[in-house]
Structures are given as C-alpha cells and as structure tokens.
Simulated assay, not measured.
Amino acid sequence: MANPTAAICVIGDEILSGRTKDKNIGWIAEQLNGLGIQLTQARVIADVKETIIRHITELSDENDYVFTSGGIGPTHDDITTESVAAAFNVTVERNQEAMRRLEQHYKGTEIVLNEVRKKMADIPVGATLIDNPVSAAPGFQLENVYVMAGVPSIMQSMFESLSASLKGGIIPTRLTVQCATGEGNVAHILEQISNQYETVSVGSYPWFKPGQFGTAVVLTGLDESLVSNAAKELCQLVKHAGFEAEDAV
C-alpha cells in the first residue's frame, strides 16, 4: 500500500527575487519523511492571486496533503488567505476565535491591534485554525490544504501543532553505499539494481574532497528487507567491478 502524498507550495515574491532564501521546504520535507508521507513536489510561486488559485487547485487534486508557507501577514501583498479561499469557492470572514487570540496576544503590550493587524484574523469560512504558539496569528486548514506563515520559526511551530492530526504511512528505509569511484564507472550497476528492485529508489550523488572523489549511492524504499538486499548486492557488484565500496549504513 502506497504512503500518503504531499506537496509544498512556497508563496512569495521575495523568494523568487532571491532577497529571501527559503528555509521551509527542506524542513517540511524532513518532517514528512519522518511521518511516512511522500513529498511529491515543491513549488515556489509569486504573490499573484490567479497563480495561487491555479497551483493550489492542481496540488490539492493531485495529493493527500498540501502545505503552503507565506502570504498570511497583515500587508497588502499578503493575499494567500483570500486566494486559497477562492480556490475552494468560499468567502473570507473575520474569525472570532482568531480575533480572541490576537487580542490576548497584544493585551498589555505597546503594540496596537489596529485594523491592519486585524486582517490576520480573516479566515476562510469552514476552515480550521492552526495554532501559532510564537505570534498568535493562526494559520488554517481548508480541505486538504494547510496554510502556514512564511517565517521559518513560526511555520515550524504551526506544523508541530498540526502534525499529530496527519495520517502517515510506513517510514522509508534509507541506506547509503559509499563507492570510491566516479559515478560514470558504476552507472551500469546502478541501472541494473534499479531494474531488479523496482520499488527501491536508487540515487547517485558524487562527492569531491582534496585528492579524492567518489559516489554516494542512496537506496530508499518502504520494504526494509528489499532495500537491505539491494544495498548488499550493489556493494558486491561494485567490488566485483574492481572498485572499493563500503557496506551500507
């Protein structure tokens, strides 16, 4: 049985311009892997309503889960909330529970909860709030789409608050065989293993050090015994071809 699938959609012109470096895709990918949820793709898109609607619709149809980051702040270019709502043909309204959380957060501080900040309490009708332990303004879940903040520390706290509700699958087994030669010398062996073990993913990653080079071959799959057998056979074939190879770890 296949694991549940997920996609990530990072939303923000600042990412596309290079001004801000994304730190969310890799972190979410690691969390999903640990839950047995297969990440199928990650997209980075602009703060354009029609673009957001199109990508959210596609990703929602193709995956069990969609996780977005960015565009739910108080400024004019934070349009993720209204765009996701439009993708599901629902309206946005001032959410009373979200307002209560904001009021509680700003109470006793010098920061005024003005109309601009109140925008962060506007949530699509029918959505479920995602807790934000860092700065109170919640994300939300609408259908199978989880909308979170772009700031890494806030996004991570949001994901951690919702992760228990996700239905995962089998955590993949991943083994690495280090080969003391270039991948061009073992490519035919990798192809042989890939064809023989169809449910095991075989990835080849060359590495370079002063005076040395080699290839790390990573084998990944849901069947632990198959991955182990594939790694052992790969190691034997590489050695038989006259190259050094370390046992899988």
Rank of each mutant, 00 (worst) to 15 (best):
S135W: 04
E82Q: 12
V48H: 06
F67W: 06
F159P: 08
A164T: 13
A98G: 09
H55P: 10
A136K: 10
V134L: 11
V125L: 10
N132C: 05
V66Q: 00
L142C: 10
T109P: 00
G71N: 03
E50P: 02
P74D: 09
N144S: 08
S161T: 06
M120D: 02
I79K: 08
N132F: 04
M155S: 08
M155A: 11
R117S: 13
T51D: 08
A164P: 02
P133G: 12
G126F: 03
D61F: 11
R100L: 10
T128A: 13
V92L: 00
E97C: 05
V48F: 05
G169S: 02
G169H: 00
V151C: 11
M99D: 06
S157F: 03
N89R: 11
G108Q: 08
T40H: 14
M148L: 13
I53Y: 05
T40K: 15
S83T: 03
L113I: 10
G108H: 07
T57H: 10
K118V: 09
I130P: 14
R101E: 05
E160D: 14
L39G: 12
L59T: 02
A86R: 11
D122T: 02
R101T: 04
E93Q: 10
L59S: 13
K107E: 01
N114W: 07
G139N: 04
H105N: 12
T173G: 13
A127M: 08
A46N: 09
Y106K: 02
Y106L: 04
T173H: 13
Y146N: 15
F67V: 02
S157W: 03
M158R: 05
D61A: 15
D61N: 14
E143K: 06
A137S: 08
G73C: 08
I72T: 01
L102W: 06
K49A: 08
Q156R: 12
I123R: 09
G168A: 10
I53V: 15
N144H: 00
Q156K: 09
M99C: 11
G70M: 11
S157N: 12
E115H: 15
R94S: 01
L166E: 00
V147D: 04
I130R: 03
Q104N: 15
F88G: 04
L59P: 07
R117D: 15
S165P: 08
T68H: 02
F67L: 05
D122M: 04
I170H: 00
S60M: 14
T80R: 03
R54W: 08
E50K: 07
Q38G: 12
L142F: 00
A85I: 01
G126C: 14
V90A: 15
I37W: 10
P74R: 02
V147P: 14
A98R: 06
A87N: 00
I123T: 03
T128K: 13
G108K: 08
L129Y: 05
Y65T: 07
P124W: 06
